[in-house]
Design a protein around this nucleic acid. Structure first.
Lengths: 145, 145
DNA sequence: TTCCGTGCAAACGATTTGCATTAGT
DNA sequence: ACTAATGCAAATCGTTTGCACGGAA
């Protein structure tokens, strides 16, 4: 279990990770993808530091984390002005190519979520992010294997 | 990538795994939890075999697989008569304790899913399973850390 | 008699951590 | 100065795989 520490110092590495996340906004990069992006500018920066910076940024809500098929993916926090969807949103994962698309959270009426919560023994359901699966537009034209 | 093979032989190990899944129905056990259950009766059965059996059973739709926070969890296939919810259903994961609860899929109207798909550049959204997050009834009474 | 399935151990990919060192504050 | 953050390598966790053997078909 990762325990919340101060995490306050503004190091160049942390700034670099934040920049990378911004430059990859909407692409939901994995830690390794962030690492690759960061390395173009700071080749000495280590993967462990990327992980630690990502955790710090998640704690500060500057970055959001999601998990798809065993790997963590990241995106800019909802507060960020650079976000393609700078509001609460859901995620749709393509069952074929694995890409993640955002959808504004307003799509799902909250009475529906309450009903679902009651159907689940009194669960209090989060309004977002809800994770959907499906087939994205580009994969729909590809014949299945 | 795991390629689909014959997987036809009815070994005692495979039957043991299937029984374990049935005895743990509705609990969404991990592979290790299935392993522990199976070992009570067959102490020599290996973890690798549990994984292989689970994959085989998923292929045959006798078992369903889901992923929560980096680990695969399993449940009996929807066709099974022993299922507490023997129909298409969604999953709600408790953000505090991690437990997974099923909710019948009929709760979400399909026009809504279509609208969501269109909002996501023409995604074709699966009717189930949709993964929700929230706080389960028992965790709601526990004060946050 | 085929080969598929098993058990074991080693390999794997993603993530975390211990430790000595560096660098924000 | 104080101490959080870094870089490296080793450790950990869940899962998969190579290989020789055993048991369904």
């Amino acid at each position: 279990m990762r325990l919340a520490t101060k995490r306050t110092r503004n190091t160049i590495q942390r700034k670099a990770v934040q920049e990378a996340i911004h430059s990859l906004a909407g692409q939901h990069p994995t830690a390794s993808e962030v690492y690759a992006a960061v390395r173009e500018r700071y080749p000495q920066l280590s993967l462990a530091t990327v992980y630690r910076a990502l955790h710090a940024l998640v704690e500060q809500h500057a970055v959001t984390e999601m998990r798809v098929e065993n790997v963590a993916r990241y995106d800019i926090g909802m507060g960020s002005a650079l976000s393609p969807i700078a509001c609460p949103h859901h995620h749709i994962v393509c069952r074929r190519c694995g890409r993640v698309t955002d959808v504004c959270a307003s799509a799902i009426p909250s009475p529906l979520l309450q009903a679902i919560g009651e159907a689940a023994n009194g669960f209090q359901v989060d309004a977002h992010p809800i994770q959907f699966r499906g087939v994205c537009a580009s994969c729909q034209v590809v014949p299945l294997s």
